[in-house]
Amino acid sequence: MHTVTLTKGVPDFREGQVSFDEDGHLERGNTPTVMNPNDKHALRTALQTKVRHGGRLSVMSMGPPGYGDVLGEAMESVYADELYLLSDRELAASDTWATAITIATGLQKLDETPDLVFAGFKTADGETGHTGPQACWCLDWPIITHVIALDVNEDEGTVRAKRLVEGDIEEIETVKAPMPAFVVADPEFEPTYRTAGDRLTLKDLRAETRERAKNHEEHLTTWDHADLNLDPDYIGLDGSPTIVSSVDPIPKAPAEREATMVNPGDEDGMNEVFDAMAAHAGGER
């Protein structure tokens, strides 16, 4: 069994250092990057599947070379066997459609067709939730969204899932689809390892992957648009029908506190510190 998890690096908005070019496009190479938080739900779903059914697990992303570190983090999280990065300048400034074309092509280039592809339900920078479903559409595979529980029948070649109906936690439906298929994990998904065998497998995979993740570059394959045989007119900015009319930079949060430096040897200064602390503690010195 072969599964693939899609992940993405997103700007670390906490840093307040998001960089845009003069046309309003995000400069990912000059912006601190972290793993998309919602992808972690997909990673947990993929890990549960690997623990229960074994097989090979890959992680794939599209982005600049620095995304290799995001993939390394994903390898350690999901105990992946191999990593794939789709990266070159021709892919820069892709919208969700151009990204989906690239990812679908990357999935087709793998030496073994995945049985399942896991995706997060949206990204922190775009919030569209388009890329996973669009990549699935390119491949003409079934897709199950808002998944909160998952089981695979390898003999039948099917996946059975419980999903929230339109994201409503109060309404759940059970669906079944043939593989290969896409699975979009919901934040409500909680992995379960009921048997002792599953828990022992999880422990063994964790120890094995920690060693592999130390040198994740050795397990990283990078493909550019030429490797994927992609026409530059259909990828990157030229292949993106989305038009960005304007971008408002994210300002740094204003400082709300002032700091006063006090030398411990300054008796009067330290008395002022104790007086201020006592007032908040409701006690006396």
Results as ranks from 00 to 15, higher is better:
V117W: 03
D275R: 11
A46P: 01
K122W: 13
G29Q: 10
E256Q: 06
T5Y: 00
N30Y: 04
V18A: 05
I243A: 13
A135M: 01
R199K: 11
L139E: 02
A226S: 12
T128E: 00
A253K: 14
E156C: 03
V183T: 03
E284L: 08
E73M: 09
R257G: 08
S61I: 05
R210F: 12
V18D: 05
F182L: 14
V165Y: 03
V152G: 02
S245V: 11
R206V: 14
G236P: 04
M35Y: 09
L107T: 14
T45H: 10
P249M: 02
R210S: 14
R199F: 08
P65L: 11
R56W: 07
T33L: 05
G126I: 08
V4Y: 00
L116V: 11
N36M: 07
E73T: 09
T195S: 12
T99S: 14
A226G: 00
L91H: 02
V18Y: 03
P114I: 15
R285L: 13
G236A: 02
P180L: 02
A135D: 04
E76S: 13
D204V: 15
Y79M: 09
E188F: 13
V183S: 00
V184Q: 00
R160K: 14
D227I: 09
I243N: 12
E171S: 14
T195W: 00
M270Q: 08
D268V: 07
N38G: 06
E208D: 15
G29V: 11
P241D: 10
L83V: 04
G283F: 09
P32Y: 02
L116Q: 05
H41L: 02
V78Y: 00
Y79A: 15
S94G: 07
C138P: 01
D21F: 06
L83H: 04
D275F: 07
P64H: 09
Y67W: 13
Y67L: 13
Q48G: 00
S61N: 05
P187A: 07
R212D: 06
Q17M: 08
Y67M: 13
D140G: 09
R163M: 09
D227N: 12
L57S: 13
R199P: 01
A46N: 03
E256L: 08
